[in-house]
Design a binder for these strands. Structure first.
Lengths: 192, 192
DNA sequence: CCAAGACGGAACTGATCGGTACCATCAGGA
DNA sequence: TCCTGATGGTACCGATCAGTTCCGTCTTGG
């Protein structure tokens, strides 16, 4: 039976890619930090690019599961529930290893917008927007899709700002903007 | 007399770094596209890293000069003048070669926040925020600094969103948020 | 008990990386 | 005229890149 070589490779690659960047991390580093042999690497993955894509897919699943958790654990009212995104971001920004959004970073580092990695990263963001759209719809907001895209834009702005500043403060600022946005937005007539 | 070898190097490097990323562009590419000899390169710059820093400094100056131009050319009223940033971004996003903000890209690609390049990039953003702060102060906004930082966060969010979507639409969405923000913000009592 | 398969280690390929050294050329000022 | 200094071209350096190949070992299911 196979041991968990593939799993070790993926988790080491995920950590290294996030901390130092994709191009900056060579195969050698992934091998030495995961303890996997060179040949085993290429038994599981045709090339480094395939590792990148699979790491992003994993991270997409993890990240959205985490977001769902933060949403269900939030004690905010339905019309304020979308703000749970910014509550969550505030936590993430405070983590020592925080270095922005792996998907934004990938799109920046992988210049070619047609590359598989760029594609997976872009899809992740659309899925997050879909989650926000659902929350806003349930919250009774009329123009929920446009609002969802504005909130996502705010979240991404907060992320790159936090990378630059090195403090979690950007999450608070973005949440402030989001609160104004939600208060101003029109909601469906109450159904009572 | 020296010809313009240094200038050719810098403009070629700036274009290549922006289009393909810093790590993705080797010295060889810069040499061949600028027509400069290898030795001449190292007569002007101690290392590639120094080119990166000087390119960023140049671009910082150019970019802020361009922003100033867009501001003075704007026909918006003083209280709406900060929106000129988003008008300008809308133009940039529509350009075929648009690939985000060179400074954000640099900070993402250069993981080390202590590196000179990261530093120059971070300083650029602070200078832009200072410009916004001045506009907001002149527009009579009370909490101008916090507002300036929120608008800058919106701008950066629009930029990374535009990279992902490949359309200029994000500028319009961000401007919409900015309008709500400015309308909601408290202004000094009118001095008439 | 033994064969199949997953594994780690290491040697090797060709290409490219950033950086150095040397050389011939060409312009301009004394 | 001659000399100085900036230039472009090229050969070269050691290091590292992604990827291939082979070999010995260990585990596990039949």
């Amino acid at each position: 039976m196979a041991t968990n070589a593939k799993e070790r490779l993926l988790s080491a690659a995920e950590r290294l890619f996030y901390e130092e960047g994709i191009r900056a991390v060579g195969i050698e580093r992934i091998l030495s930090e995961s303890g996997v042999g060179r040949a085993s690497f290429y038994r599981h993955f045709p090339s480094k690019d395939d590792v990148v894509v699979e790491v992003l897919r994993r991270r997409d699943g993890m990240w959205r599961a985490w977001l769902d958790g933060r949403i269900t654990a939030s004690e905010r009212s339905p019309e304020e529930l979308p703000l749970a995104l910014f509550d969550g971001l505030a936590e993430r920004f405070a983590a020592a290893e925080f270095r922005g959004c792996a998907f934004i970073n990938t799109m920046v580092e992988t210049a070619d917008p047609d590359s598989p990695a760029h594609h997976v990263a872009a899809e992740h963001k659309e899925k997050v927007i879909a989650v926000l759209d659902r929350l806003l719809t349930e919250g009774g907001y009329r123009d929920h899709e446009a609002l969802a895209r504005q909130l996502a834009l705010l979240g991404d702005g907060a992320i790159v700002t936090a990378v630059r500043e090195g403090t979690p403060e950007a999450a608070v600022r973005a949440r402030g903007v989001a609160e104004v946005l939600l208060r101003t937005a029109a909601r469906e007539p109450a159904r009572t």
